[in-house]
Amino acid sequence: MCQSRQQAGRTAVPTTNNTSRISQRRKAAIAEGGPEYAAKRAKLVQTAAVVFREKGYTTATLNDVAERFGTDRASLYYYVGSKEDLLYECISTVLDANLEQGRRIAAGPGTVREKLTELVTLTLKSYEEHYPYAFVYIQEDMSHIAGRSTEWAEELVGKTHEFERLAFDLVSAGIQAGEFRSDLPTGLVTNGLFGMMNWTHRWFVPGHSKHDAAEIAGTFLSIFLDGMART
Rank of each mutant, 00 (worst) to 15 (best):
Trp203Tyr: 15
Gly81Cys: 04
His208Cys: 08
His161Glu: 15
Asp64Tyr: 07
Arg73Cys: 12
Ile105Ala: 02
Ser92His: 11
Gln101Asp: 10
Asp183Gly: 06
Ile145Glu: 01
Trp199Ser: 15
Ala74Trp: 11
Tyr88Val: 10
Thr123Cys: 11
Ser75His: 09
Phe224Arg: 02
Val94Gly: 09
Thr47Arg: 00
Leu116Arg: 00
Gln101Tyr: 12
Gln176Ile: 13
Lys27Leu: 14
Val45Ser: 02
Leu122Asn: 06
Gly195Asn: 00
Glu36Asp: 13
Ser126Lys: 05
Thr190Glu: 03
Pro206Ser: 00
Ala134Asn: 05
Tyr77Trp: 04
Lys159Ile: 03
Pro35His: 03
Lys115Thr: 03
Asp96Ser: 15
Met1Lys: 12
Gly70Asp: 01
Tyr77Val: 06
Ala29Phe: 05
Pro109Gly: 00
Asp141Leu: 09
Ala134Ile: 05
Phe163Asn: 07
Leu184Pro: 10
Gln24Ser: 12
Met228Pro: 06
Gln7Met: 14
Tyr78Ala: 13
Thr93Gly: 09
Glu100Val: 14
Asn18Leu: 15
Gly147Arg: 04
Val94Ile: 10
Arg53Gly: 06
Tyr137His: 11
Pro185Leu: 06
Leu124Lys: 01
Leu188Cys: 09
Val65Ala: 04
Lys125Ser: 08
Tyr131Val: 01
Ile138Glu: 10
Ala48Ser: 06
Asp96Gln: 14
Thr11Val: 11
Ala146Tyr: 02
Leu225Lys: 01
Ser20Cys: 10
Gly33Ser: 06
Asp64Phe: 07
Gly110Phe: 00
Leu95Val: 12
Tyr37Lys: 05
Gln101Val: 13
Leu119Lys: 04
Gly56Ile: 04
Arg230Thr: 12
Asp85Gln: 07
Ser222Asn: 14
Ala42Trp: 01
Glu179Thr: 09
Glu129Tyr: 13
Arg5Glu: 14
Ala213Leu: 03
Val205Asp: 08
Phe194Leu: 03
Asn98Gly: 09
Arg148Met: 14
Val171Pro: 06
Ala28Asp: 11
Gly147Asn: 05
Lys159Trp: 06
Ser82Met: 01
Ala28Pro: 09
Ser75Glu: 12
Met142Ile: 12
Tyr37Gly: 03
Tyr137Ala: 15
Gln101Cys: 07
Ala229Leu: 07
Met142Lys: 10
Glu54Pro: 01
Thr16Gly: 11
Thr121Gln: 07
Thr117Met: 01
Glu84Trp: 11
Ala31Ile: 03
Phe180Glu: 04
Val205Leu: 14
Glu140Leu: 10
Thr71Gly: 02
Asp141Gly: 04
Ala213Cys: 02
Arg202Asn: 09
Leu95Ala: 09
Ser75Arg: 10
Pro14Gly: 04
Leu170Ile: 02
Lys159Val: 07
Gln139Asn: 14
Tyr78Pro: 00
Thr59Phe: 13
Ala213Val: 05
